[in-house]
Design a protein around this nucleic acid. Structure first.
Lengths: 229, 229
DNA sequence: CTCTGTGAAGCTTTTCACAGCT
DNA sequence: AGCTGTGAAAAGCTTCACAGAG
């Protein structure tokens, strides 16, 4: 898991945006799209921040890493800012992804409506189970794992999604890396080891619920704050 | 979105574990389970940290917020530590959750194998579409939205999962809150507003891929680092 | 000697508050 | 006057390095 960092390079365009900011830029993009749909042409940091669910100062600081795209005394041009963020995020092109594992989760991801409007295209599906190979899911024919290399090369895919059970995750990651994938989104409840230069992000569905359960427990158990004599 | 914080209370048991630590405790729990399955009875912070994919110092610091459960010169008793973390996380009980929206994602979540072993039980499914109401998914009959209050009260559910399209998210959140839910996991690509005292966590599938795409873009574009004359 | 538990240092992220542009 | 862009302060998180228990 390599997360490239270079806090602030002093060359032409400002480079090296903090991770926390990168994670929020897609949120701003969505907020700007919502405003654009409502016909809003221009907005102040406060309005955009509200749409995005962040504090206005944080929003301005985040945007300042990209450049000075606002107008003092006025605010931001919705369309212009939208384009600038999209460009910075690499969203002026579409990104093809391959999903490995077409069980319930993999199938749900293949059908997910939210991807296409965010520059993500599910380009290929792969599964190890011969009974699933050849079936069609969301208009895509499922390929066998051993064709991964060919698919990735032919379609120039650089992002892979692991949607298999935890036990298979490491082997799938190895195959993805071998096939030339350099970014992996891992939904399997397992750590995967990858060589330098390959990024991995992990989404763990149980962990999110476990964190909520923790807070839930504290809400109910800490209510009677009795001081003992 | 209320995230309760109280950095360090000086009462009996150490209270107020940092958010970052809470988010990692389930990872340690999984690592400990893996070690227990391999028959390992005791382990040092280094081994456990490796299993969990973190730095040993961070692991020890995290555990120190719970208490002193290790033995100097030796390490941690796997079973004992597992129990202590589980207790802290509220995992000595099972948590019932209700999933709203049984489209592809909701169905996948209902069938997700990883929940049961982590103390999460999908207790009810709800959908607004009358064609889905009454169908059975993963052995659970889908109920109509207007029964949410009754279901939540009867089964004493405190955690709700939103797996609807973005447009429906706010209304679903309102209904969940009205029904008495105090923790929400939101998979819909939209912000939801909730009153104080209700926790919301958000998982956004596109955003994770957009972040990977950003790093991917920089990998390829910054390769030829040519200095101009 | 080994490995934990933890102050202290270092780094990142957030928030404040205001100078400066329009 | 209004709102951005940003240094500087504050808060939070990670890592170091070592005292101290076994």
């Amino acid at each position: 898991m390599t997360i490239l960092r270079s806090p602030r390079l002093a060359d032409g365009t400002a480079r090296g945006i903090p991770d926390a900011t990168v994670a929020r830029l897609p949120v701003y993009l969505r907020a700007l799209n919502a405003l654009a749909e409502q016909g809003v042409l221009s907005c102040a940091s406060g309005e955009l921040a509200e749409q995005a669910g962040v504090n206005p100062a944080k929003l301005r600081k985040d945007l300042s890493y990209l450049g000075s795209y606002g107008t003092r005394g006025v605010g931001y041009d919705v369309e212009y800012l939208r384009y600038q963020i999209a460009r910075e995020m690499g969203q002026t092109q579409d990104w093809d992804v391959v999903i490995v594992g077409v069980g319930n989760l993999g199938s749900a991801l293949s059908a997910y409506q939210g991807f296409s409007t965010r520059g993500i295209r599910v380009a290929a599906l792969v599964d190890a189970d011969p009974r699933r190979v050849g079936t069609t899911i969301s208009d895509i024919v499922v390929s066998p794992v051993d064709q991964l290399g060919a698919i990735v090369a032919e379609r120039r895919i650089s992002i892979g999604v692991i949607a298999t059970p935890g036990e298979a995750a490491q082997e799938v990651a190895d195959r993805l890396v071998e096939a030339g994938i350099t970014s992996i989104l891992n939904f399997a409840p397992a750590l995967v080891q990858v060589p330098d230069g390959v990024d991995v992000r992990k989404v763990d569905l149980s962990i999110e619920l476990q964190i909520l359960a923790y807070h839930e427990q504290r809400k109910t158990s800490s209510e009677p704050k009795v001081i003992e004599a």
